Amino acid sequence: MNEMTMERQAETVSPTYGVVDCDIHPAFSERSELARYLPARWQEHLRDFGLRTGNPFAGSMPYPRLTPGNGMRRDAWPPSGGPPASDLAFLQEQLLDPLNIEFGLLQPLAAGSSVFNQQFGRALCTAINDWQIDKWLSKEPRLRGAICVPQEDVEGALAEIERRASDRRFVQIAIPPRALEPAGRQRYWPIYEAAAHHGLPIGMHSAAYGSRANTGAGWTSFYIEEHYAFSNAAQTALTSMIFEGAFERYPGLKLVLVEGGFAWLPPLMWRMDREWTRMRNEVPHLTRAPSSYVGSNVWLTTQPIEEPENNRHLYDLLRWIGAGRLMFSTDYPHWDFDHPEHAFKVPLSPQDRRAIVRDNAISLFRLNAEAKARA
């Protein structure tokens, strides 16, 4: 189908289906809110010793632009008070209802997976997951959660996965890509095995917390560098998991790269395939080209969408990546929020648009039965 045909077809079709938003960031109404979900011992620990993470700025986000006062939509502050995305009623009013969100996937940005005290990390992840249920999932049937796990504490991560896997309100396992070691290392494989066993994708969100900086050289001077480097973390995790053989070992493992962009993927696949052709003897455990694993095991969310100077170049990106690899996300309530009707600066064919904004996520996160029940 040529570009002109795609434009005409897209212009004549008005979507009647819902949207799946794969990146919503719920917030605490106040800093003490999470503590209420912790056992007394860890409430006291948090009060007396605080959080110790790889973040060099204790008690704050590494860049002011990431804080609730600066990194949010100006209209996202709830009338009832509290930071953006901390009030369910206002989230329903501003996001779920007007954008016809059929399902919204929560991506909590909290430090439970990255604290140095691993026992405390277990407690924090359990508290975050309990908080998701109590404040969001039990009250709004359109929302779905992510199982937060302490990935550096594999035993604790497996325990939390087993605790939540049967609860269909959780549809993925959240792991930050900036781990202590490259994501493909075998120390993390038990988590991937559990994810594949339960049919839960691994969701890696590039921003906010992690054990490492987003760049190989360390923390950057400016937020603009940090924001750009979201794609670095995604690429590093992806290449490690491919070449270490995680997808070869666990063919059913599914990886979702969240908020890392996607324009970098085609040249990365070209380069991986070229190097594999030349040096495949170093990785004999791979039975096929690296790009083939991307095509069978990897998905990406759309926000932040790269916007080339010539908008039509997006057609090339979609053709190279394939619409089946992309899933729509708003990144609500952050300042670079994407609206489903305006995110793509080129018209999409009705088939590609529906795949990206709804059907890919419905299939990947096994939401078909619930979607049919609502129809």
Results as ranks from 00 to 15, higher is better:
Arg144Asn: 09
Pro56Asn: 13
Pro79Cys: 08
Tyr315Phe: 13
Met272Arg: 02
Arg144Phe: 08
Ala159Lys: 02
Met241Ala: 11
Ala196Val: 06
Trp136Asn: 03
Phe120Met: 10
Thr12Met: 11
Leu66Asn: 03
Thr215Cys: 13
Trp299Asn: 05
His205Tyr: 11
Gln92Asn: 15
Trp276His: 04
Ala369Met: 06
Arg178Gly: 07
Ile24Leu: 07
His339Arg: 12
Gly324Trp: 07
Met1Val: 14
Glu181Lys: 09
Asp130Tyr: 01
Arg325Asn: 13
Glu309Cys: 08
Val20Trp: 00
Val357Thr: 13
Ala183Trp: 02
Glu93Met: 15
Gly184Cys: 01
Phe49Gly: 05
Met4Ala: 14
Asn310Ile: 15
Ala213Phe: 07
Leu96Cys: 01
Val171Tyr: 01
Pro26Gln: 09
Gly82Ala: 06
Val115Ser: 07
Gly252Ala: 13
Leu109Arg: 08
Ile356Arg: 01
Glu225Thr: 12
Ala146Ser: 15
Leu367Ile: 06
Glu275Ile: 08
Arg163Trp: 06
Pro150Arg: 01
Ala361Glu: 04
Pro304Trp: 05
Leu257Ile: 13
Val294Asn: 02
Arg142Asp: 04
Glu152Ala: 13
Leu99His: 07
Ala234Pro: 03
Gly121Lys: 00
Ile147Asn: 01
Ala157Asp: 04
Arg65Thr: 03
Met4Pro: 03
Ala217Asn: 08
Glu160Thr: 03
Val258Asn: 02
Val149Arg: 00
Asp352Ala: 05
Arg353Tyr: 04
Arg169Val: 09
Ala263Gln: 05
Thr215Gln: 11
Phe247Tyr: 09
Phe243Ser: 03
Cys148Met: 13
Phe337Pro: 06
Pro304Lys: 04
Ser32Leu: 07
Arg312Ala: 14
Gly59Arg: 09
Asn100Pro: 04
Leu96Asp: 00
Pro201His: 07
Lys135Cys: 10
Trp42Thr: 10
Ser240Gln: 09
Asp130Ala: 08
Leu51Pro: 00
Leu364Tyr: 04
Ser363Trp: 12
Ala127Ile: 03
Ala183Asp: 05
Leu106Val: 09
Tyr315Cys: 03
Trp299Tyr: 12
Gln107Ile: 14
Met72Cys: 13
Asn232Lys: 03
Arg274Tyr: 14
Cys148Ser: 11
Leu180Arg: 12
His313Lys: 14
Arg8Trp: 10
Tyr37Gln: 09
Ile202Thr: 04
His227Lys: 14
Gly54Tyr: 00
Ala196Ser: 14
Ser349Asp: 08
Arg278Ala: 15
Leu326Pro: 06
Ile173Tyr: 00
Glu306Asn: 14
Glu370Arg: 15
Asp336Trp: 12
Pro284Glu: 10
Ile356Glu: 05
Arg47Glu: 08
Ala323Asn: 10
Tyr37Thr: 08
Ser138Ile: 12
Ile161Ala: 00
Pro201Met: 08
Pro26Glu: 07
Ala89Ile: 03
Ala246Val: 09
Lys254Gln: 12
Glu181Asp: 07
Glu7Gln: 13
Ile362Gln: 07
Pro304Ala: 09
Ala179Tyr: 01
Trp131Ile: 04
Trp131Phe: 06
Pro176Lys: 04
Gly82Met: 06
Met327Thr: 05
His198Lys: 04
Val20Tyr: 00
